[in-house]
Simulated assay, not measured.
Amino acid sequence: MASPINGRKASEIFEGQVLLYKHLYAFIDSMCLKWTIELDIPNIIHNHGKPITLQELVSILKVPQTKVGNVQRLMRYLAHNGFFEIVRNHDDDDDDEEEEEEAYALTVASELLVKGTNLCLAPMVECVLDPTLSGSYHQLKKWIYEEDLTLFGVTLGSHFYEFLNGNPEYNKSFNEAMASDSQMINLALKDCNSVFEGLESIVDVGGGTGTTAKLICETFPELKCIVFDRPQVVESLSVTNNVSCVGGDMFISVPKADAVLLKYILHNWTDKDCIKILEKCKEAISSDGKKGKVIIIDIVINEKKDDHVLSQLKLLMDVNMACLNGIERTVEEWKKLFTKAGFQDHKISPLTGMLSIIEIYP
């Protein structure tokens, strides 16, 4: 059947409609995820010790009977998207297979939302989906016509990090989110012996609450690690024999060490600013005639090599960083930065599904 749109087949138009509606209603995916955290459903299932039936779940949640069907529909959708698994519960006291009930089990994704565990990303969900942050994205049109302002400069009246400094509660939420994400990176770093081999000292620039530094020193006890961040960030951090903290400005100077770690730092900044940061890092690792290295943990966009889903996530993160005047870089863009900052060589290796680890040498 012919169509009135550029001679396209009706089947093609219907496919276009499916794609359009999928993205049109994609915000519901985020809101369903937020719903599971707010109702503490991952922890309820975890504490239950086995897959939980709908009736057991709504009983614990004290949901009105009129909303039980809605809970079932939300759980069915979340299961379809991989956050829960629908299994069959069998009553051990009854051999009748008809007594089996559907029940919800955790998947890898929802296990990452169980609060109180070592690997929990619930703080990330709570921070990103706070209306203060997520609501800003309604102003993309206005932002794109502002010459210098970030998206949050448009909606909040200041740069995002200035907003954090002036809002202690949200700053706490943000730091908890970053710490939870660091645990995922730390899981990968445990297998990166070659990256830290031969080093005696390392500076974690923008090291925040010291989560990564402490992990590195636990894994590599011979290393001395300095957590370097804004003075107000590190002033209350506890120190150990291997971990110390220094407050300062990475655009002015970076503490001397064999290596400098930049985890999730450079994607926040323009090329011009990144070159300044890298130059300060180069000075820090090139003292006393010795030459160390800079270790970068960040996204590397590689559409030719990555599968469609991974590329989609990286490009989505790039749009997110654009709203902060940051950027997720391609392989070629990273190389260009390193050359302009005066580095001679580099090595890019996979770290997590989304992140790479880059070692650059002066």
Results as ranks from 00 to 15, higher is better:
H267F: 06
K276Y: 00
D29M: 07
Q344I: 15
E222C: 02
V319K: 14
S30Y: 10
Q312T: 15
L261E: 02
I299L: 05
D271M: 08
I360V: 14
L129P: 11
E200G: 08
L324E: 14
L237W: 03
C274M: 03
G82C: 12
T240W: 05
Y161K: 10
G292N: 01
V63F: 04
K224G: 02
E176T: 12
F83T: 08
G135I: 10
Y361C: 04
C192Y: 07
M124T: 07
C217V: 06
D204S: 12
N47M: 12
A322M: 13
L20C: 12
D273L: 10
M317H: 09
Q17C: 10
K214V: 08
I28Q: 14
G49M: 11
P64V: 12
Y25G: 08
G210I: 07
S356T: 13
D181C: 01
L57R: 01
D130N: 15
V309P: 00
M317G: 15
G247W: 00
S287W: 05
P168Q: 09
I297T: 06
R230S: 04
V234N: 01
D273F: 04
N81A: 10
Q139W: 02
S244Y: 02
V68N: 06
G353W: 13
T240C: 11
L215D: 07
F196V: 12
V125F: 02
L133W: 11
D191E: 11
D298S: 03
M31W: 07
T209Y: 02
L313F: 10
L112I: 03
E303R: 08
V71S: 04
C32Q: 04
D318L: 08
P168M: 08
H308I: 15
D93Y: 06
E333N: 10
T352E: 03
G326T: 08
E283F: 10
M321L: 09
K190V: 11
N171H: 15
D271P: 06
K304F: 02
A105N: 14
V18P: 06
G135A: 05
L266T: 10
I358R: 04
K22M: 10
H346G: 05
D307G: 10
S349N: 15
L106P: 12
P4I: 15
A322F: 14
L61G: 08
S134A: 09
L316V: 12
E279Q: 13
A10H: 11
L355A: 04
V18M: 13
P221R: 04
I299F: 03
N241C: 09
K347Y: 13
C245E: 00
V319Y: 11
V114Q: 00
S136C: 14
T53R: 07
G16P: 12
P123Q: 00
M31E: 13
K115A: 09
S3I: 05
A177T: 03
L129C: 11
E100I: 01
S110M: 03
